[in-house]
Design a protein around this nucleic acid. Structure first.
Lengths: 172, 172
DNA sequence: CTTGCTATTACAACATATCGCAACAGCGTG
DNA sequence: CACGCTGTTGCGATATGTTGTAATAGCAAG
């Protein structure tokens, strides 16, 4: 896989425009003096076949399927680089694990029910209230893509009206 | 719920009231058929001397100072139990690591600047907008104590010219 | 005080992510 | 096309949590 610069033909990739986005990866790396290596090429390929969210471990796993010699640290480091280029974004799942978003999805955050484990996307509209409050109050610019909100969804709240909440201890 | 009104806080010293909260830990455990062990006693003691936020690793570390034979898994499992009792809450720092809140602090979330690394608390007021939007829109009850918002704080945003049009170049 | 049920612990193996460092390799140059 | 600067990789070590399991010990009953 010594793709010496003269092989512009991206092997039979699906005719999808998304590919264009990733096709620029190499150029973007070059533009910053970074390199286009087999490992990076592979990860970009995997990402190109991905949509939505993926955990870091999942990406490592998929890369391993293509190349069993894949090293985790390389994958994580490459993801850092791609994030710097704006090709991916990461957030943290409800359990704190890394979770990557493949761009260019609509910017969104996540909602996670701690009771049933389901999760949904949060659009800019719903987060606007918080964003404005933080912006006006502190000039803080919220990063919606990194936002994960935990709580209890409607169905679960309705299913278990009375929970063993001991919080908010009424003292004295 | 067992409203133990047997110890109506002999309010001698203001600081002592915090101790009372932890003093009930044993009773609360018993009330659920759980046990009061040296390990739990130690962790509760450590938590009693803590305020604000602590990472799991930090707690493990402090317990180790009191008892070098402390095992991490025991600490984490005990924290889970204490969380079920409502004595502590956990969230995830910007890097996804566990972060515990010792109650009864005012319920709050966290704000973290990805540029300078500083962080602040978010009060119920600021989060109200989001909470209401999620509640009205989906009947979702947000858990503010588990909320961590990432973004760029005012000073950092001011220090760096606007480049949001390009691929957000998040250094690091 | 002894006994017994079972919640808890210690410990080891795993899982996920990061870091240090020496060897390697991409790619611009001569 | 070889050279060499420097970005990258491989890989072991480390950090932080999680989980399985046999052995231990809290606590209440007898």
């Amino acid at each position: 896989m010594i793709a010496t610069g003269s092989v512009p033909a991206p092997d039979g990739a699906p005719a999808r425009r998304d590919a264009d986005r990733w096709a620029t990866a190499r150029e973007q790396l070059h533009a910053r003096g970074l390199r286009w290596t087999p490992q990076r090429r592979m990860l970009v390929e995997v990402l190109g076949q991905t949509d939505g969210h993926v955990t870091g471990a999942e990406l490592v796993e998929r890369c391993r399927q293509k190349d069993a010699s894949t090293i985790p640290s390389t994958v994580y480091r490459t993801l850092d680089v791609l994030e710097a280029l704006g090709l991916v974004r990461h957030a943290h799942g409800p359990d704190g694990r890394e979770e990557y978003h493949v761009l260019p999805e609509t910017e969104h955050g996540h909602l996670h029910c701690s009771r049933c484990g389901s999760s949904w996307d949060i659009g800019p509209g719903e987060a606007a209230g918080l964003a404005v409050a933080l912006q006006d109050g502190r000039g803080f610019q919220m990063d919606l893509t990194h936002l994960t909100v935990s709580g209890v969804c409607g169905p679960c709240a309705a299913a278990t009206p009375i929970d063993t909440n001991l919080q908010g201890e009424t003292m004295s």
